[in-house]
Amino acid sequence: MSWITKTFSSSIGRKFIMAVTGLFLCSFLVVHLLINLQMLRHDGGASFNFWAEFMGTNPVIRAMEVVLMLGLLAHIYQGLALAVKNKKARGGQAYVVNHSEQNSQWASRNMALLGTLLLIFLIVHLMNFWIRSRFDAMGGLAEVRVPNLDHPVGDLYSVAAASFKIPWYVALYALSQIALGYHLWHGFRSGFQTLGLNHRKYTPAIYLTGYGFSVIVSALFAIIPLVMFFSEAYQPRPATGNTVEQSLTTEPALR
């Protein structure tokens, strides 16, 4: 075994992979959230569609999309593999009485469970949005015109707005954000610790930032489908076959 494979198959090397990919996925969440928040503007999804088009066509973003998918797969594979290895290390006989709640946080002990819940959500989520927006054969998107672009773009907003009128999907989405919140609650600070970034000067700030990040990000992600479910202001545009003109200030009459 070369020193490289030895490094990344060691327990510390594998945790290192988890930390690097996990923190990278955190940065992705910020971008995703900022674009999702565009849906709450009262512009019929023009801003959201503009940014969805940007994410779907910008060559840097498209390249990063590949990195993101690889990072996600590495995080999922390594996380599950470590969970299996760690379970094996625990041994066959469990404690008859174990009060682990008195020495550690629930989220910290249940990262594999939370991650698995997120994986289930992610499969539904990607099938619904990502596959449809990237592959025409999987349903494709209606076309709209948005300001500042000289070509029509896909109406991903209507897919989201339609999805967020389905009660079970809104419930799944919002509940999954609880799992996301708990996963980030531990994962954010844990990533820094694994990378060796623990220092009495900065660690309290890293902990606070992680707790704030997990609550704010998961709450905002959860609020968007709930608002769009309960408010009449957010409606999907029926597919007519015609390209609809969108403006950033006024929503064209819904047909």
Binding site: I12, R14, Q193
Partner: peptide
Amino acid sequence: GFGACSNIGSCAAECPVGISLENIAIMN
């Protein structure tokens, strides 16, 4: 055959002599 650390912190909480998690970061 020991497992990999996932920074749960129960070790440091139960350590009778108070070894801190900072040591694990130093080792990493």
